[in-house]
Design a protein around this nucleic acid. Structure first.
Length: 301
DNA sequence: CCATGTCAAGGTCAC
DNA sequence: GTGACCTTGACATGG
């Protein structure tokens, strides 16, 4: 079991997701920003190693405007060496990596232009992981997409479009159950027709489910991962009190996490903590895992 | 120099 | 039909 947090680290003085406005785009600006982002990413990974966090989500802002037509620059070549160095560090320390492009990536859209743009976006995420030399267990996660007033038809479009994706995307793409539209059960239905692995999100499952107890749900998601895909990836969060249903916590609810870990102690899976204060809550979570989890937890070096 | 309106992208839901 | 919200900080402009 590996544990981590997404994209940002508040304890370090750098930002691995620095960006700029489209209006101020220039190749020089891109180089400067990516250079900053990659060197900060390296700092974060070192911090993570020192603190026992062996799962990390690389920000989609790492390469700003990578899929936008304005970006014609060959960042792949420019940063080849830096990416390899980072990749080697990740492999050497047996770290798990994910990426999560945001809500604009819809491979089940009705509009073909949106699908095309989405594929372009997925393409660069996968290229980045490929350039780092990461194994197939480094994943790019998305939600199923929109419903467009006809869920069955939209799920079918997902399946059809998924099958047409280039291999470099297919080998990394995974879907996550969401909190309003596509439940774990829906994801399983899609998995049965595509073999796409499912990331289990406990909080989304709390918001939208079909009465499966959490351990049963986790187990069902686990079955969708092959040896090459690696250990089941999961996202963890819980409800921020007094806020809209679905709002992630500012900091970890230890009792809730403890209960979750106890209920799922028989399973090995990696946990991405989607909590606003990032590494601070992750450190608390690591303590809990050390107490309850049967599966081995890498220790801080 | 600082405050704050705004930022590539789509879809859903409340009103 | 329109606008807030997702998620959210920080970019960058205008005062």
């Amino acid at each position: 079991m590996k544990l981590g947090y997404p994209c940002l680290n508040w304890s370090l003085p750098c930002n691995a997701g620095k960006t700029f406005r489209l209006k101020s785009y220039s190749d020089e600006k891109l180089i400067e920003t990516v250079d900053n982002n990659l060197s900060c990413l390296m700092n974060i990974l070192q911090y993570n190693k020192d603190n026992g966090f062996y799962f990390f989500r690389i920000s989609s802002e790492t390469i700003p405007f990578a899929s936008h037509e304005i970006c014609q620059f060959n960042w792949q070549k420019q940063f080849e060496n830096q990416l390899q160095t980072i990749g080697k560090f990740i492999l050497k320390n047996e770290m798990r990596i994910s990426m999560h492009p945001d809500q604009f990536v819809l491979i089940n859209a009705l509009d073909k232009k949106i699908i095309k743009k989405s594929i372009k976006e997925l393409q660069w995420h996968c290229e980045l992981l490929d350039l780092m030399g990461l194994k197939e267990d480094a994943k790019v996660q998305i939600h199923v997409g929109g419903v467009y007033d006809d869920k069955q038809a939209s799920m079918k479009r997902f399946v059809d479009n998924y099958k047409k994706l280039p291999e470099l995307i297919k080998k990394r793409l995974v879907i996550e159950n969401d909190d309003r539209l596509y439940s774990l059960k829906d994801c399983i239905e899609i998995h049965e027709q595509t073999n796409i692995p499912i990331i289990f999100d406990n909080f989304h499952h709390e918001c939208l489910h079909n009465d499966e107890p959490v351990a049963e749900a986790l187990s069902a998601a686990q079955k969708t991962w092959t040896k090459n895909d690696g250990i089941l990836m999961t996202d963890y969060s819980s409800q921020q009190p007094g806020e809209r249903v679905g709002k992630h916590r500012d900091s970890i609810d230890i009792k809730h996490f403890e209960k979750y870990i106890k209920a799922t102690k028989d399973y090995d899976f990696d946990i991405m903590l989607e909590i606003k204060d990032k590494e601070k809550s992750a450190a608390k979570a690591l303590q809990i895992i050390g107490v309850y989890s049967k599966t081995s937890v890498p220790r801080p070096s």
